[in-house]
Design a protein around this nucleic acid. Structure first.
Length: 639
RNA sequence: GCUGGCGUAGCUCAGCUGGUAGAGCGGCUGACUUGUAAUCAGCAGGUCACGGGUUCAAAUCCCAUCGCCAGCUCCA
């Protein structure tokens, strides 16, 4: 007998030579569904036999790591199924990913939608066979022999790059794969899986390499969890901003206009206007100066800024004006710098903060265009801050506060924040990089914003902070970016006169809080599923007369509510009440005011809120004060 | 840009292995006079993305083009 220490059962006595699986069966008790274990801190298969005094923790598919193992095992089963159906297939890699797993194949067979059920059926067969997953540790030579016999050239390529030491392979049935493991004990342990989609993917993500075929799938511990996941995806589709954009008549794109170019319809434009008004007011309150700059600039400007050197491929072709080349701006920076340079600046003038809702145009490859999220023409909520070294920390902290305030004002509360540090190729002095990076880092710490460091992921001209928010499909979209720029001040000779009467180079910070109005509006639409907060709703209330004889009264109500400063319509169409209510719900209008005989007689309205909260009869005045309460804009930032 | 899929009425889609187009919603008109998520009826909408080809005959099969979608790649 030996002793192992478990987390749940404490120290237990087990037979010497017992595998973890047997121990789990004997001691994990109710905790059925153990699929792997953590032995002295490392994940391993249940076939492993622990030594005396080992620390053991059982892993189930309820934990994120357990789920990952389950999905990884399912990807092996899928690969097996594909090889059974299409024997010429070569295996490449098949990891678990955030919501499931994928496996990339090199095969002459082009996958089609009808293949997914076939592969699923084959997988079900493999699961029913309940084959054990068997790990073997082999020598590199043995592994090479095995995979070259099988013609698995990609596996050989991976093999050649692995660290020296024994190689682990996993088998189940006839299937064998190079794999680190661990895996569930048997294929029968997979209870709920589904293949989701297929797509092309380059070998090793490099577009110069061969395009492989990727199958995506997912697996869960139970059928219920899988169904829930599928329903969540369907729900997310309903929230797709492109769909809501059409249904709510917010925006569109047109083939005739061109891809990635947005047409803002009246309702979308109104929401945008409300966002812009809010944005401008808050910037003025927070010490920014508003500026405007042109859409095009001479070649020389972009030469000096360096954009023609390092950003040319994202810029559109120049236009000839009086023999001079002019370029449509992909960024606002050079213009703001020109405003700064338009006169001499004293250290007393700093910090200077120029803000502009600047519309820029960038070439994006056609395949990446996506609704409002990825476009070719967009308006950045841009600003450039010029400050002295002793002001840098305060500016960064102020920016972090301001960013979070803005995002929260629109209903976002979950952020993924990244700090990107100096890359291999960079401009500017290392000492300034270090100082700036430290200022960003300590700013994040001081403001208590959790973040992740992306080492070497900064842009060449300076370190940056990025804040991303997630959309309903779980994709993260970058909104806020706060970047220090060491390049432009250098290139344009930006300087101020210090208290020593000598010129100094200021720190230049480039930032966008919402990112682009287009993307932000897309994220906002999905976040609220089209049901915008009352202060942003294009139509805040609709008056619904019960029948034609109430139309006149409905107009009167509409007039009074509109007179109080609200966006209100009257639905005078010759339709039944239920029809108009339904329409109002689908248009996500926050308040519906039903007026019929009772309301006319008593001189009031019967409001119903979005989401079927039925309010009792009230006077028009009390409704207006209710609306005033619900439509309040986020309060200005304190301090 | 690459790989795959898809382009049929304003929208969502049907139209099997070729025989010159259909539904629901929406729109218009009329009837009904409506009490909290779809009243009924009639009518009008389509060069079946576009250009070639095969065929007696093409929405359907083939080729090219354009667009959209998913993913990859890219993303200052």
């Amino acid at each position: 007998m030996i002793t192992v220490h478990t987390k749940d059962q404490g120290s237990i006595q087990v037979d010497d030579g017992a595998a973890l699986g047997e121990i789990a069966r004997a001691h994990a008790g109710k905790q059925a569904g153990v699929i792997a274990a953590r032995l002295d801190g490392n994940l391993c298969d249940l076939s492993v036999k622990p030594g005396d005094g080992a620390q053991v923790e059982f892993v189930t598919a309820d934990s994120p790591e357990g789920l990952e193992i389950l999905r990884h095992s399912t990807s092996h089963v899928m690969a097996d199924a594909v090889k059974r159906l299409y024997p010429d297939t070569k295996l490449t890699i098949g990891p678990a990913v955030e919501d499931g797993f994928y496996y990339d194949f090199d095969t002459a067979h082009a996958f089609a939608p009808e293949d997914l059920p076939k592969i699923e059926a084959e997988m079900a067969r493999i699961i029913k066979e309940d084959l054990p997953f068997v790990r073997e540790d082999v020598s590199r030579e043995e592994a090479e022999r095995l995979f070259s016999e099988k013609g698995e050239s990609y596996k050989l390529e991976i093999l050649r790059e692995l660290e020296p030491g024994p190689i682990s392979i996993y088998r189940h049935g006839q299937f064998v794969d190079l794999c680190r493991g661990p895996h569930v004990p048997r294929t029968g342990g997979i209870k709920a899986f589904k293949l989701m989609s297929f797509a092309g993917a380059y070998w090793r993500g490099d577009e110069h390499n061969k395009m492989l075929q990727r199958l995506y799938g997912t697996a869960f511990k139970t059928k219920e969890q899988l169904d829930k996941h599928v329903r969540r995806i369907e729900e997310a589709k309903k929230r797709d901003h492109r769909r809501l954009g059409r249904e709510l008549d917010l925006f569109s794109t047109s083939e005739d206009v061109g891809g990635g170019l947005i047409l803002w319809h009246p309702k979308g434009a109104l929401i945008r206007k409300l966002i812009e008004d809010f944005w401008r007011e808050r910037h003025l309150e927070n010490g920014y100066d508003l500026v405007f700059s042109p859409h095009i600039g001479r070649e020389n400007l972009w030469q000096t800024s360096g954009h023609l050197g390092f950003y040319r491929e994202n810029m559109y072709s120049p236009m000839d004006i009086d023999g001079q080349n002019y370029f449509i701006k992909p960024m606002n920076c050079p213009f703001h710098i020109q405003i700064f340079r338009s006169r001499q600046r004293s250290y007393r003038d700093l910090p200077i903060r120029y803000a502009e809702l600047g519309t820029v145009y960038r070439y994006e490859r056609s395949g990446v265009l996506h609704g409002l999220m990825r476009v070719r023409g967009f308006t950045q909520d841009d600003a450039h801050i010029f400050c002295r070294p002793d002001q840098l920390s305060a500016e960064v902290e102020g920016l972090i506060d301001f960013s979070v305030y803005m995002l929260r004002s629109f209903g976002f509360s979950e952020f993924d924040t990244y700090l990107s540090t100096r890359p291999e190729k960079f401009a500017g002095a290392p000492a300034r990089w270090d100082a700036a990076t430290e200022a960003l880092r300590s700013g994040l710490v001081a403001k208590g914003l959790p973040f992740q460091v992306d080492p070497g992921e900064g842009v060449f001209y300076g370190p940056k902070i990025d804040i991303k928010v997630k959309d309903s499909l779980g994709r993260a979209w970058q909104c806020t970016t706060i970047q220090v720029d060491f390049n432009l001040p250098e290139r344009f000779g930006v300087e101020y006169i210090g208290d020593d009467n000598a010129p100094h180079q200021p720190y230049v910070l480039h930032r966008a809080l919402l990112g682009s109005l287009e993307r932000f509006f897309g994220v906002l639409t999905e976040h609220h599923a089209g049901a915008f907060p009352v202060w942003l709703s294009p139509v805040q209330a609709v008056v619904i007369p019960v029948s034609e004889r109430h139309v006149e009264y409905a107009r009167k109500v509409r007039g009074e509510v509109a007179g109080a400063g609200f966006r209100v319509q009257a639905d005078e169409r010759n339709e039944k009440l239920g029809y108009k209510i339904r329409e109002g719900e689908m248009q996500k209008i926050p308040f519906m005011l039903v007026v019929g005989d009772r309301e006319v007689a008593d001189g009031g309205v019967s409001p119903r809120t979005r989401g079927r909260e039925d309010l009792k009869f009230m006077t028009i005045e009390s409704f207006v004060s209710l609306l005033r309460e619900r439509a309040v804009r986020p309060a200005p930032r304190r301090g």
